[in-house]
Simulated assay, not measured.
Amino acid sequence: DVFAYIAVNKRMGTIHCHIYHVPKGSGNRAYAAINNAFKMLAADEKARGSNPFAVTDPKREAAPDLLFRHQIHRADLTAIQQIGAGQFGAVYIATHRILQRAVKLLRNAASTADKDEFTREAETMLVLDHPNLVKMIGVAVQQKPWLCVLEYMKYGDLKSFLSTCREKKIPLRYGEMIYFGEQLASGCGYLASQRMIHMDLAARNALVTDNNIVKVADFGLTRPMEPGVDYLLLREPMKLALKWMAPEGMDKKYFSEKSDVWSFGVMLWEIASYGANPYSQIKTQEIQLKVREGLRLSKPPGCSDEFYDVMNTCWEQDPDNRPNFRLLEMRLSGIREANPTPSRDVGLVVSS
């Protein structure tokens, strides 16, 4: 079967048609699931009227202590426009006390599992503070719809940003690519210093804003390391992206800073390939065996040897032989300083 959908990116001024070959009989199921999700979003919007942040159920719910201490008044939020829809519901640009913010809504019909994940991600973000991690501003979770208020990243996710560069034939300068990687390594290094494992590093989960600033986002799968050790043995079922996963994660459910480093290497490859899909010619179910046998992503066209070498150090089979994020940040910083690049705001060029 073939399944397709059209995505409109208002921020970048692009329209993409995504076409997938799916197992026979699953195309209609995918359509039904997505159609049902849009119907639920439409029902939520109708219940809220012209104000998407308005309370739809006056009943108050108890909030975990950390979230309660970071409550904001939804009356201080003014929606500007919807910019997307995530796992939990719609995402808006809004003003909050003059500043622009991104606001994620949890749909009214959310499952208990979705509520738990929404809460866990908010609690994780509230304890993190680094210039290259997307900042949580506050929440409103005592009445429906639940809201999560984040700093607004003007140019959206890094994967779409890179794809737009390719489509509009706007090549990134070498120093700009390296600077993206350096910032992401810095944010990931801080995360590791807090004994956290992101577990879903990919270009789609990083966001871009003014002055070529990029930040790690989407902490829904982030988990703390186990007490007394520097790893996590995953015991809960979790949907993870195999093409970004380290072999020890696929084989043994073993995750650490070094498994995040592997994923970071794939993210660098995405930067150098302008948002291409890794292992695009290989079926997902074959990835685990191929990687175990030594398959690695090939050097993207135009990529320098030294940048590709950084990627390859992230893909060492033995986690102990991979660099940590601090070393990666230092190495990328050294490459950038040795290759000075004229200053420009790439997002401004791409979105014009």
Results as ranks from 00 to 15, higher is better:
22 V>H: 07
104 K>G: 06
194 Q>V: 00
51 N>P: 06
334 G>E: 05
296 R>K: 08
48 R>T: 07
304 S>N: 07
24 K>G: 12
308 Y>Q: 08
292 R>F: 00
98 I>C: 13
238 M>N: 12
21 H>Q: 14
225 M>F: 06
84 G>I: 05
351 S>V: 08
214 V>F: 00
246 A>E: 04
49 G>C: 08
213 I>K: 11
68 F>N: 08
351 S>C: 10
240 L>K: 02
149 V>I: 11
327 L>M: 15
326 R>Q: 14
306 E>P: 00
230 D>Q: 06
199 M>V: 05
128 L>Q: 14
316 E>P: 01
267 M>N: 01
171 P>E: 11
279 Y>D: 05
207 L>V: 06
125 M>T: 07
267 M>G: 00
282 I>M: 11
212 N>G: 06
24 K>D: 14
23 P>T: 07
116 D>W: 00
189 G>S: 12
284 T>V: 14
341 T>D: 05
129 D>P: 01
277 N>Y: 10
177 M>T: 10
174 Y>A: 08
142 Q>V: 02
113 A>W: 00
341 T>N: 04
269 W>P: 00
122 A>P: 05
206 A>T: 04
304 S>H: 09
4 A>E: 12
95 T>R: 14
271 I>R: 09
272 A>W: 14
341 T>G: 04
122 A>S: 11
244 W>T: 03
211 N>E: 12
130 H>Q: 01
95 T>I: 04
298 S>N: 09
168 K>D: 08
280 S>G: 00
324 N>A: 09
176 E>K: 10
347 G>C: 03
228 G>T: 02
233 L>V: 09
6 I>T: 15
104 K>C: 09
243 K>G: 03
86 G>R: 01
160 S>C: 08
215 K>E: 05
252 K>Y: 12
80 I>E: 15
145 P>V: 08
208 V>L: 04
83 I>P: 03
114 D>K: 13
179 Y>T: 11
290 K>Y: 00
232 L>H: 15
225 M>E: 15
38 F>N: 12
309 D>F: 02
